Simulated assay, not measured.
Amino acid sequence: MNTVEFNYLFTTNFAHYTPKERRDSSIALEADATFEIKINNDEYFKEDIAILEFYIYLEKWLKKLKRTDIDFKYFTLEVDDDEPLISLLKFNDKSARLKVLWPSQDLYNVFEYDYILSKFQELHEQLGRDLEEHYQIKLKDFVGKIPMRYE
């Protein structure tokens, strides 16, 4: 069975913003991080992304997933492309493919669905805590206020 690991390193901060400015959703795309995905300890993806935007896509997807079976697709406003930057595509009841727009290398990217879903849920929980701590923000100030693209 494949294993997946998500890592991120914040590359920006909001120290120059006042607490009031930190609640303004217009600064969301300024929250950047180097985001890495490893499959079986091998680098599969490593790019700088708008990490707060990515988190909000995770948040919306996990909420929708409670009501309906839907794939995860992260389209960033920073890349003008018809393909999502990162996606999780369920292709039967037990498997899903983790796909990225620019893989570092070709790796077998199919996972047991329950396993990869739990890893995305763990990422969502940890990333949310880390975003609030690092940027000194409240995520509720941004959810629903950032333009998103869905397919």
Rank of each mutant, 00 (worst) to 15 (best):
L101A: 06
L101R: 07
L101W: 03
L101T: 01
W102P: 02
W102S: 13
W102K: 15
P103Y: 06
P103W: 04
P103M: 11
S104G: 09
S104N: 10
S104H: 10
Q105K: 15
D106A: 13
D106C: 03
D106N: 13
L107H: 09
L107G: 06
L107T: 10
Y108E: 15
N109I: 05
N109C: 12
N109Q: 09
N109L: 08
N109D: 14
V110E: 13
V110R: 04
F111H: 04
F111W: 11
E112S: 15
E112L: 12
Y113C: 06
Y113A: 08
Y113M: 08
D114E: 15
D114N: 15
D114Y: 12
Y115A: 07
Y115M: 06
Y115P: 08
Y115N: 09
I116R: 03
I116H: 06
I116W: 10
L117S: 07
L117Y: 15
L117F: 15
K119C: 14
K119F: 08
K119V: 10
F120M: 14
F120C: 13
F120D: 08
Q121R: 15
E122G: 07
E122A: 14
L123R: 02
L123G: 00
L123A: 03
L123S: 02
H124V: 07
H124E: 12
E125R: 10
Q126S: 04
Q126G: 08
L127T: 00
G128S: 05
G128C: 06
G128R: 02
G128M: 02
R129N: 10
R129G: 01
R129P: 00
D130R: 01
D130H: 10
D130S: 04
L131E: 00
L131V: 02
L131K: 01
E132K: 09
E133N: 07
E133K: 12
H134C: 01
H134Q: 07
Y135M: 03
Y135F: 13
Y135A: 01
Q136H: 10
I137R: 06
I137F: 01
I137A: 04
K138M: 01
K138Y: 10
L139N: 08
L139T: 07
L139V: 06
L139R: 03
L139W: 07
L139Q: 05
K140N: 13
K140W: 03
D141R: 05
D141C: 06
F142R: 01
F142E: 00
F142D: 00
